[in-house]
Design a binder for these strands. Structure first.
Length: 873
RNA sequence: GCGAGAGUGGCGGAAUGGUAGACGCACGCGACUCAAAAUCGCGCGCCGCAAGGCAUGGGGGUUCGAGUCCCCCCUCUCGCACCA
């Protein structure tokens, strides 16, 4: 690939960056104690740790840059900052590499870690590398096994059956992402749902607390709290028992959960999930039912797929009695859109007031009876067409419920159900228990032994960690642990007879559910050292992608509670502050032949369009999308850092846009950041060469005072911006300070006195400290130019404080509106009174013109901001 | 399908309900240069000669005043429980 032309360099990042990185490490600038004794306030900054996929990507660079700005800023603000890094090192890609390329997952993973560690270190992050660990290390996962055993003892774990995607050809369980159009990604075989015994964490036990505690997380994004709230999904409704007209085997009743017992009289059918026990019982005697259920099983386990698939149903021929109407019975269907995991796995269908039920009823010609009349509608002409009505109203066509509001009817219906013994009011949760068993090799072994005589036996703690065997084969399909010749054969710790090891491993979400706690004392002999955890937890600022808003964060919240219940931790909430960053995107490119091209293969043309760097062939410029390997719209951070330096990459990332939004990586943006670094270097160089350390002058000229005001306003504004995660605003304020410095340089060239020289030095020193969290290497280099003899590094210096006197405004510009429209401005001293502002405003010709011949009926005045004349003619 | 967000000049964006467009990128003009690059200066929402008008995805509403608050709609993004 053609090399871009070399850039003119003043600031030699290639020498400076490694030098400062070594200096910080040598001085131990980022080290803290596990359990410090002193009274320094603590601050724990954590970014979501990476999966070692091979190389770091721009999403990592963004994530760790954001975290590093916070860590360096808080350190300067006087906090003892814990800022660790590790590796989320178990997972499917390592096994895929093993199957595809014959590399052992451990080798692949540790090689990737070595590569990525080097890349992260070249970013100049203020990380305490001494705390690093990888979850695939027995020194980590052994403690996880201990936690599992403690949870088991505390009743927080159970064994239960769950449905999985089964590839009958490969003989493996498939992840949802490995199911493509209902087929296994490797074998192409039609996927089936299969039932397996699984270990499950009882997260639902904490459902009420997980929900309520969201209210005590003010430093979490509102939308994440909302998403978790909806995910936990507390609802109030009724459990209703419908009697089958004829029992099927031992099944005489069908239980349904509904949030709308007020619409029971609008029922037209009952529908079962295909996995419902009654459906299973029917399929044994009815081949058509069995065929329909088999068809539903092909859909896999993904809820999104189930809910978007066309609605399908099968009429079982069974009927149930209505709980309130002795005379009426309704058909029982099996429907592909009913979820076994929610409620009881059966619903009653009220098509008039539920859209899915309506779609289903229309498809199969089932009756639609409206029972809630919207406000303002007439019963006589209210009909349901293709839109179900789910709003409030008055109940009709419903016997004893007629005339009630839908809310009152819910209570009345529940009371009547209870009286008849056909149901009761219940609270239901959408949240399901967390199945953690995975039939895979590259994960943490579940420390359990299955004994024919003793049943499920926990591995004795003295035998932990249960280590993965290294000599495994990926030649055969299925779980390598299961077909390993010796590993699973053990003696029962209880009875001493031959027994079988659990060959399932943990979901990798388990690994990432407590790593933040391990970082407090990574060498501890127990999972966590209480003193260290009590000191450092909770994480004060957690930073990561919005894609983790629900699962990872909810599992970590559960784990923290479970660790508290088992005495490992003293807190319930792991993350006091949360920030979710956006993705990194880039234009995508395709050749005329339709092949994706890497940005590095493409040359943008000045007149628009693009061509291939080597062949000159025209290139189609596609959408701006999240960087992904499959679209090849990726930019390699390593190459960017080698060419421009880490500070350029960091500065561009911070400057481009607000960090919670998606950012677009562009060559022009990187170039802009690069040029700004060179500019700062020039500006500070001129000051270092042209001024000397001197006592503060007694008086300042207008230009010197203006520069001092600009400096101190920059201090205040950058501080505020950093506090608010408004890094792009912080960048803009630094630009403004640089502009003020450049202006002062011009003034100094013409007629600069000692006072201006002093103000320029002051500005330069402040600038170094303001940019330090964002461009730490440049900050050190510039600081060294200004003060070659200084003993302390910028990384060791406190955050600057603005002088209040320099922040005060001498004049303010007040907008003058007539009838809310801007008609002019007046400039007055701050704090001017309303009558003075009104008089000044009326003296403006434009305002006088607008007010001529009119009567001011109202005058709105906001001090120092606006005066608005409301007039009538 | 369900849940949650986002949408402001050519582009990224700024803006306690109070002068929309700070700052940057791109672009244009000028200076410097034999020339180019780099650098520096000026300009830059749209319509209009101007006065002025119009502008924050679209449509309504609340308010003296709305990018900001409320309702409806459109588009895009994230999540949906075995990717991490």
């Amino acid at each position: 690939m053609a090399q871009p032309a070399a850039l003119p360099t003043r600031y030699d990042f290639a020498t400076a960056e490694p030098r400062w990185q070594q200096e910080w490490a040598a001085r131990g600038c980022f080290r803290v104690a596990d359990a410090p004794a002193g009274g320094q306030p603590k601050y724990y900054v954590l970014e979501m740790f990476p999966y070692p996929s091979g190389r770091i990507h721009m999403g990592h660079v963004r994530n760790y840059t954001l975290g590093d700005v916070v860590a360096r800023y808080k350190r300067a603000r006087g906090f003892a900052v814990l800022h660790p890094m590790g590796w989320d090192a178990f997972g499917l890609p390592a096994e895929n590499a093993a199957r595809e390329r014959g590399i052992h997952p451990a080798r692949w993973t540790w090689d990737n870690i070595a590569t990525m560690r080097g890349e992260l270190q070249r970013m100049g992050l203020s990380i305490e590398w001494e705390r690093e660990f990888a979850t695939c290390d027995p020194a980590y996962y052994g403690h996880q096994q201990k936690l599992f055993l403690d949870f088991l003892r505390a009743g927080l774990v159970e064994r239960r059956e769950a449905w999985v995607n089964w590839d009958p050809v490969d003989g493996t369980v498939l992840a949802n992402e490995q199911v493509i159009d209902g087929r296994g990604w490797r074998s192409g075989a039609l996927v089936e749902k299969k039932r397996l015994a699984q270990w499950s964490f009882k997260i639902t036990r904490f459902a009420p607390d997980l929900l309520e505690a969201l209210g005590q997380l003010p430093r979490w994004p509102e939308r994440v709290r909302l998403m978790q709230e909806k995910w936990i999904g507390r609802s109030e409704g009724a459990r209703v028992r419908f009697a089958l007209a004829e029992a099927v085997g031992e099944i005489a009743d069908l239980e349904v959960y509904t949030t709308r017992p007020d619409t029971l009289f609008g029922m037209s059918f009952l529908a079962l999930a295909p996995e419902h026990p009654l459906a299973a019982a029917l399929s044994a005697r009815d081949p058509k039912a069995a065929a329909f259920i088999a068809e539903c099983r092909r859909m896999g386990t993904s809820e999104a797929l189930i809910e978007t698939a066309p609605k399908q149903g099968f009429d079982t021929g069974l009927r149930v009695r209505h709980p309130f109407r002795e005379d009426a019975t309704f058909p029982v269907w099996i429907a592909n859109f009913v979820l076994m995991d929610y409620g009881t796995g059966a619903i009653f269908g009220c098509p008039a007031h539920d859209q899915r039920d309506l779609d289903f009823a229309r498809k199969y010609g089932l009756p639609v009876t409206p029972v809630v009349l919207p406000p303002g509608a007439e019963k006589a002409d209210f009909v349901i067409a293709d839109q179900a009505y789910d709003g409030p109203g008055v109940v009709i066509n419903s016997g004893f419920l007629d005339g009630l509001s839908e809310a009152a009817a819910k209570d009345a219906a529940i009371a009547e159900l209870a009286r008849r013994g056909r149901g009761e009011g219940v609270v239901n949760w959408r949240l399901r228990d967390w199945g953690v068993s995975r039939q895979r090799y590259w994960g943490c072994p579940i420390p359990i032994i299955h004994c024919q005589a003793c049943g499920v036996v926990p591995v004795p703690e003295a035998d932990l960690p249960v280590k993965l065997p290294e000599d495994v084969s990926f030649e055969k399909p299925g779980n390598p642990l299961d077909h390993h010749p010796t590993w699973k054969h053990v003696v029962c710790p209880t009875c001493g007879r031959p027994a079988r090891r659990e060959t399932d491993t943990f979901d990798t979400f388990v690994d990432s559910s407590w790593y933040f706690a391990r970082f407090c004392s990574p060498g501890a002999a127990r999972p966590v050292d209480r003193a260290a955890a009590d000191h450092w937890l909770p994480v004060d600022q957690y930073i990561g992608g919005i894609e983790h808003a629900i699962l990872h964060l909810l599992y970590a919240r559960f784990f923290t509670r479970a660790m508290r219940a088992t005495g490992h931790l003293g807190i319930a909430e792991p993350f006091a502050g949360l920030f979710t960053q956006g993705m990194v995107t880039h234009e995508s490119y395709k050749s005329a032949a339709g092949a994706w091209l890497y940005p590095s293969e493409v040359e943008k043309l000045p007149e628009g369009g693009a061509r291939h760097r080597e062949t000159g062939e025209a290139v189609i410029v596609g959408r701006i999308e999240a960087m992904s390997k499959s679209r090849r719209n990726t930019v390699d951070p390593g190459a960017i850092i080698a060419r421009f330096g880490a500070d350029t990459a960091r500065w561009f990332i911070l400057s481009d846009n607000p960090p919670e939004r998606d950012m677009e990586w562009t060559e022009a943006g990187v170039q802009g950041a690069w040029r700004f670094i060179q500019r700062l270097d020039r500006l500070v160089e001129a000051i270092a060469a042209g001024t000397a350390d001197a006592p503060m002058p007694g008086a300042f000229s207008a230009s010197a005072r203006a520069l001092r005001q600009a400096s101190h306003r920059a201090v205040a504004a950058v501080t505020e911006a950093l506090e608010n995660f408004a890094f792009n605003v912080a960048v803009a304020r630094v630009h403004e300070l640089a502009n003020a410095l450049a202006e002062a340089e011009t003034a100094a060239g013409m007629a600069g006195g000692d006072d201006l020289a002093w103000a320029r030095r002051e500005a330069a020193f402040l600038l170094c400290r303001l940019i330090a969290p964002m461009m730490p290497h440049l900050a050190e280099t510039l600081h060294e130019k200004l003060a070659p003899e200084a003993a302390a590094l910028i990384a060791e210096q406190p955050w600057p404080v603005a002088e209040p006197a320099l922040l005060a405004r001498e004049q303010v510009t007040i907008a003058v509106q007539v009838l809310g429209k801007l008609r002019g401005t007046v400039t007055l001293p701050p704090g001017s009174r309303e009558d003075a502002v009104a008089a000044a405003a009326r003296a403006e010709p434009n305002i006088a013109k607008a007010l001529a011949g009119a009567r001011v009926v109202k005058q709105i005045f906001v001090p120092d901001r606006i005066i608005n004349f409301v007039i009538a003619r």
